[in-house]
């Protein structure tokens, strides 16, 4: 196991190095001179040149790479061209929103997907299975920002509208009256339709602001994950060792819990690891829909404003995040499956 872990860590370090070269290289070939952008179109050639020297942009490529990467690794991510503050500060502030959001979404999607997949697999071919997988099909097909809009409408806007319907009477009024406890509950929750009060407003308020975005992010992921869980379980349930377990006299649900689930986890972990990168991409959209000051919005704004140092550092951070998640996935594999614990 130690040999295996050491070889995995070495491979991870190598991947990070190659990734950093690619990120740096791509930023180099992108058009647009940051010094010119900062000073505007009317600045003199001399002023631009002076700024370039000040920013170190006229140094040779390897030197600039070295300065950037050593700075990056020691926590100095440079200074944003547009905000004029250290990038590290900006990122830390934004991560406080994005990281909880991504983790909540990941946890939610797993919490929804595993039971749904288990339920569908144990009722293979029956109504419950068909219904769940039908829902999952919709979940896969519908984009997360659309879910976001529906969620806001359902939980925030509709309760207010319902009050008007109750007052009007008629068919809609009757329906709204029947559902009024639900709407009252939604109103009592007081979920904001967007924006973020900051963690200093209290963790309850902050979490409330994140819950709708997290659900919107989680639902499509949960849909995919539940399908994977179901098919992995069904495949495992056809294996010979399941028959061995049944021949021992274990009842069916115990066989699923003790013998099928852990074997089925391996493809589920794979998808979970891959989904992390999709979650990050998803936050860029969802943060814009919900007007959250997260990392996604930071990158989006930095790209439109050609704040290349921010883009470069945040990209590198995200790349490292994905690589670390992949490493974690590999470790989880080895925990789930003893056959993978041998040295690569």
């Amino acid at each position: 196991m130690a040999v295996w872990l050491a070889s995995r860590l070495a491979m991870t370090a190598a991947t990070v190095l190659v990734a950093s070269l690619v990120v740096f290289g791509v930023m180099e070939v992108l058009p647009g001179d940051p010094a010119r952008l900062m000073l505007g179109m009317n600045a003199t050639q001399d002023a631009v040149a002076a700024l370039r020297t000040q920013m170190g942009l006229d140094l040779p490529l390897p030197v600039r790479y070295w300065t950037w990467i050593t700075g990056f690794l020691t926590g100095d991510l440079g200074r944003s061209y547009t905000y004029g503050v250290p990038v590290a500060e900006l990122v830390a502030e934004r991560l406080a929103v994005s990281l909880p959001l991504a983790l909540m979404a990941l946890a939610l999607s797993t919490l929804i997907a595993l039971p749904v997949g288990l339920f569908a697999a144990s009722r293979h071919g029956k109504t419950g299975d068909v219904a769940m997988m039908g829902l999952a099909q919709i979940g896969v097909a519908v984009p997360n920002f659309w879910f976001a809009i529906i969620l806001v409408w359902l939980l925030v806007l509709l309760p207010f509208q319902a009050q008007a319907w109750v007052a009007q009477g008629g068919l809609w009024g009757a329906l709204a009256t029947v559902l009024s406890p639900v709407f009252a509950f939604f109103q009592w929750l007081k979920l904001p339709a967007g924006g973020f009060p900051g963690w200093e407003a209290g963790s309850v308020a902050a979490l409330k602001a994140l819950i709708l975005p997290a659900i919107a992010l989680a639902l499509p992921q949960a849909a995919i994950l539940s399908r994977v869980t179901r098919s992995a379980l069904l495949e495992v349930l056809g294996e010979d060792y399941i028959r061995t377990a049944r021949a021992k006299g274990l009842p069916r649900n115990l066989v699923i819990r003790r013998h099928a689930l852990r074997n089925a986890l391996i493809p589920v972990i794979t998808i979970l690891g891959l989904q992390f990168s999709f979650l990050i991409a998803g936050t860029i959209i969802i943060e814009n829909v919900f007007y959250l000051p997260g990392l996604g919005r930071l990158v989006f704004q930095a790209i439109t404003q050609r704040d290349l140092i921010v883009v470069q550092s945040v990209t590198m951070l995200l790349v490292m995040g994905v690589i670390v998640v992949n490493l974690l996935t590999d470790v989880l594999y080895a925990i789930a499956d003893p056959r993978l614990r041998r040295a690569a």
Partner: peptide, 17 residues
């Protein structure tokens, strides 16, 4: 308990984990 069964394929008859 009362009936035990042995299968054909020993490579797959045991739970690998």
């Amino acid at each position: 308990d009362d009936i035990g069964m042995v299968f054909q394929e020993p490579m797959t008859a045991l739970n690998p984990v």
